[in-house]
Design a protein around this nucleic acid. Structure first.
Length: 301
RNA sequence: GGGGAGAUACCAAAGCGGCCAACUGGGGCAGACUGUAAAUCUGCUGGCGAAUGCCUUCGUAGGUUCGAAUCCUGCUCUCCCCA
């Protein structure tokens, strides 16, 4: 029997966590989380990780498994998941992956080009170049070392330019020479299922979920992580707004309001990302039964 | 009752005779994205249109002017101060 990876995706607040648990029960699978923030053990409330009961009921992977101080990326995730899958498939030929980080999901499903790791000092060099001289210096530097990529990148996005520059410098090759953008073949079948909701419904759910987070102690969690605010992991909706409140820049009410707004925007960006993916089988989030029967039919054939 | 200030697009707020379909901010919408991606970045935001463009706007009704969001008059409403 062929191994199958069921990928459950959808915007934040759609209801993936609960459905994933149901699917895991139904198909006797464990769950691979594809969420770039739930993976950090220090962030619990603000990332809406599965409940303790859910975690007890079904084995979840990549939930609170590393520290905010650790370096992580979509390509590491790809490798970690591919390393883990054989042992999961040995137990059951169906595995559930659930999450909202589009790039992480793509990394697992399609693969990412191999690009050597870069030295932190090189990265910092370009960060300071950007801080001190502005984006124009980055552009000039990139045009010199990788004109091909220069013609393609978003020249207003400093992060993109810096990434290319650090690769060029650390490898001595143009960044663009690493980009094959070729889909990797996987030795398992992938079925993507997307959860959709009406915009208004989704936004209402997001809003009230933020209220619940605050009620559960998001402010305290954020306060305890304030000292790590510069870490990338903390550049995250739900935390940075509270940091601004702690700084006295905005009121508490404003912070909560902004968390809601930024979560809504995040949800929209997620949907934009997946709009291009024609392999996704979309379902209304309320049709959990429909999803289960769709998968059951698909798997038995 | 008397005196003063003001009404601008979803909201806030500039504009004070032509360069105004109207600065800017918020909100909203749309999009890009192969390396910490819940990040980072971009565009649009009166209507119609692919577009040169056309049509309807700056409380309301008139007026002045070649031309008005901008000037004048009436009306309506809001706010502030004195009674």
């Amino acid at each position: 029997m062929k191994n199958i990876l069921i990928v459950l995706l959808g915007p934040t607040g759609a209801g993936k966590t609960d459905l994933a648990v149901n699917l895991a029960l139904r198909f006797e699978s464990e769950i691979i989380s594809a969420d770039s923030r739930q993976i950090f053990r220090e962030m619990k409330i603000g990332t809406a990780v599965p409940s303790d009961q859910q975690l007890l009921l079904i084995k979840h992977h990549f939930i609170r498994s590393i520290s905010i101080k650790d370096y992580y990326s979509s390509s590491i995730f790809e490798r970690d998941v591919l390393d883990l899958l054989p042992s999961l498939f040995s137990k059951n030929n169906i595995v559930i992956m659930s999450g909202g980080s589009g790039m992480y999901i793509d990394a697992v499903c399609n693969g990412i080009d191999d690009i050597p790791d870069t030295d932190m000092s090189i990265r910092e060099k370009y960060i300071s170049m950007y801080m001190n001289e502005g984006i124009e210096s980055l552009r000039i530097a990139l045009r010199l070392v990788d004109p091909e990529h220069y013609s393609k990148v978003d020249l207003k996005n400093h992060k993109r330019i810096m990434r290319a520059l650090e690769i060029c410098e650390s490898t001595g090759r143009p960044y663009s020479s690493f980009l094959k953008k070729q889909k990797r073949e996987r030795d398992f079948e992938i079925i993507k299922v997307g959860m959709k909701r009406e915009r208004e419904d989704l936004y209402n759910r997001i809003n009230s979920r933020v209220d619940e987070m605050v009620h559960s102690g998001l402010e305290e969690e954020a306060a305890s992580l304030m000292k790590y605010r510069e870490l990338n992991a903390l550049k995250c909706v739900g935390y940075r707004e509270f940091f601004d409140f702690f700084d006295g820049k905005i009121t508490r009410e404003k912070a909560i309001e902004l968390i809601k707004r930024n979560s809504r925007r995040y949800a929209k960006r997620q949907m934009t990302w997946w709009d291009k993916d024609k392999d996704i089988n979309w379902f209304h989030a309320e049709q959990a039964d429909g999803i289960i029967s769709f998968l059951t039919a698909k798997i038995t054939f």
